[in-house]
């Protein structure tokens, strides 16, 4: 997996292969720490990703399967999360730790704004796309001027990564759309990479726990199976 994506990035860059190979792609390697069999989430990236999500995406999208309290999984204490969400409002009410990540945009208004398209809930977005986290990254960095032979539908934008290339979502990210607390430079590609990482956590919050338990379970079972083989051989020795 890891190698595949790396190789694809290496191949894509010099060949100018795929319209998504922008100059800034080289700054952010197309690899997320959670990819591969034993990968785990990069909590710093998740925290930056949440900032992008909350500042930019939340004005249109929801991720309603997640509560703000769940953000402690990003390596924050409950107090830090409480501080982080202190200024967030839903329906003019401040959110609590038990609020869900609901978007600020009512559905009817969204449909009117985007020519009928409704910003989908992002709770399972990374899991529900074949290329997952990389797809979201390419989607967010894939906005381009439409080629001459393409006529865009009303209220649509040209996006190299979106199936059909015409998407109702206006390019959400710009350089310095957020200011990262950890001093990371907020390029569009960096923001896209971070918010993609955050959304993959939103889709699969148990990945770290699953792999940690899994590793122990598998080692134990290998040991148990070897023991079973030894026992069987001993018992069956005389039978042949």
């Amino acid at each position: 997996m890891k190698f595949g994506i790396f190789a694809a990035a290496l191949l894509a860059a010099p060949l100018g292969f795929g319209a998504t190979a922008h100059a800034e792609d080289t700054l952010v390697p197309l690899h997320w720490q959670s990819q591969g069999t034993f990968g785990s989430y990069d909590q710093a990236a998740l925290q930056r990703g949440f900032l992008v999500y909350q500042t930019v995406c939340a004005s249109c999208h929801s991720a309603s399967a997640v509560h703000y309290r769940d953000l402690t999984a990003l390596g924050l204490t409950t107090e830090q999360v409480a501080d982080l969400i202190a200024n967030i409002k839903q329906d003019n009410q401040p959110v609590t730790l038990n609020s869900r990540l609901i978007g600020a945009l009512p559905k009817a208004q969204a449909a009117a704004t985007f020519g009928g398209a409704i910003p989908p809930d992002l709770s399972n977005m990374v899991a529900a796309r074949p290329k997952g986290v990389a797809y979201v990254y390419h989607l967010l960095t894939g906005y381009q001027p439409a080629p001459a032979d393409v006529t865009l539908m009303a209220k649509h934008y040209y996006n190299a990564a979106y199936p059909g290339n015409q998407i109702a979502m206006p390019a959400p990210l710009t350089d310095n759309a957020v200011t990262y607390a950890d001093g990371t430079k907020a390029t569009t590609a960096q923001e896209a990479s971070d918010v993609a990482a955050f959304l993959s956590w939103v889709s699969d919050p148990n990945l770290d726990a699953r792999r940690q338990i899994g590793l122990r379970a598998v080692i134990f079972l290998i040991f148990l199976t070897l023991l079973a083989i030894a026992t069987k051989r001993k018992i069956w020795r005389d039978v042949g």
Partner: peptide, 25 residues
């Protein structure tokens, strides 16, 4: 017992190992 039990234990061990790999990975 103990012949088939030990024999099937081996088969079950391999099967459960495969099962666990899929469940977790």
């Amino acid at each position: 017992h103990p012949y088939y039990t030990s024999h099937h234990f081996v088969a079950a061990g391999v099967y459960v190992l495969l099962f666990a790999v899929l469940v977790f990975f």
